[in-house]
Every structure is written in C-alpha cells, then in structure tokens.
Design a protein around this nucleic acid. Structure first.
Lengths: 211, 211
DNA sequence: GCAAATTAATGATTTATTCAAG
DNA sequence: CTTGAATAAATCATTAATTTGC
C-alpha cells in the first residue's frame, strides 16, 4: 500500500510505507476544496455542478470539515461578503482532457502498462500542455486502465465458460498432507553421480564468476 | 497471464522439469489432432455454432463419451453428417473447467505450491467431480502456475514497459528512459557486495557437498 | 428544454497477493 | 519464517451521462 504526498509544481511524488498510513490518510480532501478557481482542464459540460456540496458527508467528515473551517474562517467571511456570486469549487479529482486521454490511450495501446517513475514524470510533463495534471494522475490512470481492461477480458471469458457449468457454491475441502514425495511416480532419489555432476557444474560456475 | 489448457495449439505447454518428464514433452502435438469431436471441458471460446452439441450433453455424458473415444484413432460419425463444417476437434490435453480452476487457484492462493503425491491424488479426486482430470494435470498445473507467476513478476520488475516506438517518441516527444525504478519508489539495485556474497555462498556450498 | 434523480464511468484509496531477500 | 517491494484486486468516491417528470 502506498501513501503519498505530493506537490503540484514538480509532480514529484514521495511515497512512504505503512508507517505514514494514518497521517497520509488525512491528505485526502474531505470536501471539495473551497478554492476559487475554474477548472484548468474543464470538460465540455462543466456547468451544472457545484450541487449539494455537503450531501455525502458522514459524521466523521462533517466534524473534520468544521475543524478545517475554523482555520479558514477569514476567507469564508470574505466570501460571505459576496453572497450572490457562487463559490466556484475546483474539482477534487483530475479529469483528463480529450487530448490527454487520447495520448494516454495511445501509449497504452502501444504497450505501456506500468510506466516507471521517469516515464511518468515525462508523460506528465508532456500532458501538462493540455491541462492541469500531476504524476499521480498518470500513475493511477495506468493502474486503473490496466486493471479494467483485464477485468473486461476476464468477465468475457467467464461468461463464455458459465454456459458449460452452473456455478456450485459448495465448499471443497482438501486436506493438507505432509508427505514430501512428489507426483507422478515414486521419485527415485538422485543418484550420487547426478549430485556430483551438479556439484561440479556449480563449482565451475562459481569459479568462472570469480574470474 | 498463464494460459494453461486454453491454447488448443499447444503452444503454451512447456515443461520446465528435468528428464523425469521427458516423455510428457511429446504430448505437445505438432498439428491438431484429427480425432474426437466433443470436449469434456468447455473451452472459453468454444465456437458458438456448436453450442447445440455441447448443450445436449451434460458433463457426465461428455466425460463418458470421451472415455469411450479415447482410444479411437479417428472420428467416425460426425464428420459424415456435417462434411462442410469443420470437425470440432477436442484437445488431447486437459482443459480445466471454471470450478477446477477456481479450486486450484484457491489452493495456490492458500499456499500450495508443490503438492505431494498424496495431495495430488486427493485434489484430483475432488476435482474429478467437475470434469475429466488426472493427477498429472494437477501436478503440471502447479508446476506451470508457480513458474509463470514467478516469470510474470520477473518480467514486471526487470524488463517491464519500455515499448515506446520511435514514432511514438517523435509524436509525443516522450523520450525513452533507461531507469528501472518504477513509480513511486526507487528500488535499490543489488550491491556488489550482495553479488559477491552469493558467489562465495555458492562456492562454499559446492565444496561442502563434495565432502 | 430543464434540472432533479438515477445510473454508468472512472479517478483515487485501501487491501491482499506475490516473490524472494534476509 | 519473516518481511520488503511492488503491485493488482477490491473498493470507495466523485464526476459524467442518462433518464425522467414536469
């Protein structure tokens, strides 16, 4: 599991292990950010949103939202001075532009599946020409796309196979045994000659490596 | 992804074991076998024009049919009745059903890697309820699955996705990078000390075996 | 036509695995 | 046997598409 911190400028993306799990969790915005900006890479139909911002909040998130509002009370008060103008909330998640999507899909089509960090940085840098984007967006895009393509394919074959057999939900029980002997026959233990040949091979290999 | 049993041409069937299973190698046919017209276990892409054939017979009858025809050298009846339609050739090799596959993968997931002969017999007995199967199929399945899982991982970690074509580079101006580190971390390559320790270990092992 | 309501897609996180190094 | 690295699978959450009642 990856936790992440990032900055918008470089797309640099520092990960740490589970030790930072809890702290990093809170990086996730609990509400659409109260920033006053239009979408940098707005999709064609971005007009009807800003609806019912707080509808999906559970108690936990409501509490945290209130905590956050305490800090930014000054900004909220300034916004209250212009109540008739709706606060334009920037999207909480990346939304690829058509150009970005086209390039990403082309890259995928040509074989890119899990790009390296450098590749991600480069792709991100290129795609930034077409709109706001970060490295993690590229990373996630490939993760998701790969997974969902696989999922699609898997569902297809599963559907094909279910024609032949009805699913049986019953449990199977196969007990574990401790026997060491292997299938298919009674394995004859390796002869001394075999062992010796292997040993000498290994020895010569080691020696050649040392040279 | 491993494709054991799904490739009718037999291209995916290879054994990495020693001369012990040398005979099994010959199971790989150079050409599709011209015999048998029904499959015991439905393959995913079983041609739809023959669905009616498959639907008539339940698994039990199919199995029986196969057993009866295992020794026959040529297809007899169906070819004459449908001369223009290519004969549905059953693979001579095992093709796992979804249930069999599910159980095998579950066993693998739970830690079974190289089951003992007893385990194999037990597993085979359980899986026979879902279709024709032999002990060697189980044995080979685990061998192949284990090997291909390892192979898959190695491919991913070592020589993964660097398939940018030249055209692509030019078009998107995304240059190839040689770095192997992947998003988001940078794996440290094995040090020289590590390599040397391996060599000396191998050497000492060989020497101890010689005593 | 229009939003509210609903559904489908998909971006972002979390969880469960894998192999293999120590 | 334990653990690190690194996903891939499963899941959550938000956005877009679509439907629906007016």
């Amino acid at each position: 599991m990856w936790t992440l911190g990032y900055d918008d400028n470089g797309g640099e993306f520092c990960f740490s292990e589970a030790a930072f799990f809890h702290a990093a969790r809170k990086l996730r915005p609990l509400l659409p950010r109260p920033l006053l900006s239009l979408r940098a890479n707005g999709p064609p139909n971005f007009s009807s949103q800003y609806h019912h911002i707080g509808n999906v909040l559970d108690e936990e998130r409501k509490r945290e939202y209130l905590l956050n509002n305490e800090k930014s009370s000054s900004s909220s008060s300034t916004s209250s001075t212009t109540p008739t103008i709706p606060i334009v909330v920037s999207s909480s998640r990346w939304n690829p532009t058509v150009e970005q999507l086209r390039i990403l899909e082309e890259l995928y089509r040509r074989g890119t599946r899990t790009p390296s960090a450098d590749q991600i940085q480069h792709i991100t840098a290129q795609l930034r020409r077409f709109g706001k984007i970060e490295g993690k967006n590229v990373f996630y895009w490939f993760q998701n796309h790969k997974a969902r393509e696989r999922q699609k394919r898997r569902r297809q074959t599963a559907a094909d196979q279910t024609k032949y057999s009805e699913r049986e939900k019953e449990e199977y029980e196969i007990e574990e045994t401790k026997t060491k002997c292997r299938w298919p026959g009674t394995p004859t233990p390796p002869s001394t000659a075999t062992l010796l040949s292997k040993v000498s091979l290994s020895l010569s290999l080691s020696l050649s490596l040392l040279n």
